[in-house]
């Protein structure tokens, strides 16, 4: 069958979704296992550091899945993703600096560092939806 390139190539989208779901599953299992062990075993500091970092390394798999998906896009669609990443990086930088000052001088509560990742993923998702909408068919 002739290869069809549509706005969404469903066979690639399915493959990409499956790959991301697998890595996300591994990440969630390791996060749950690591958290359970930290709470129940009360490990030494060295072991606690190791256990705490296990889910972080598992998250590299999610990044790999995303990179593989982007490589399968054509050059224009890749440009949209690069633009979305740039917007997400700018939003994250602004949000972290602004909140840092609020923490320091306005008594705002301290937030865990991984909130920066949530901001970045949120900003990226919003940016890619808006950019695709602007270039809709």
């Amino acid at each position: 069958m002739k290869k069809q390139f549509q706005t969404i190539d469903w066979s690639k989208a399915k493959r990409s979704f499956r790959r991301t779901a697998i890595y996300l599953g591994i990440y969630l299992i390791l996060t749950f296992a690591s958290a359970s062990m930290l709470v129940t075993l009360h490990p030494s500091r060295a072991l606690a550091i190791t256990l705490a970092l296990v889910p972080a390394f598992a998250a590299i798999g999610i990044v790999r899945a995303y990179l593989l998906s982007v490589r399968e896009l054509d050059e224009f669609q890749r440009r949209l993703h690069y633009e979305a990443i740039l917007i997400a990086a700018a939003v994250t930088a602004f949000a972290s600096v602004a909140y840092g000052f609020l923490e320091l001088w306005a008594g705002f509560p301290r937030l865990p560092a991984f909130f920066a990742m949530l901001v970045m993923v949120g900003a990226f998702s919003l940016a890619i939806v808006v950019l695709n909408w602007r270039h809709r068919l």
Partner: peptide, 16 residues
């Protein structure tokens, strides 16, 4: 869509 197929890119790219 025809042109996109020939170029092996998305229709979105041809339109842009």
């Amino acid at each position: 869509a025809d042109l996109a197929d020939r170029l092996e890119v998305s229709r979105q790219s041809v339109n842009a």
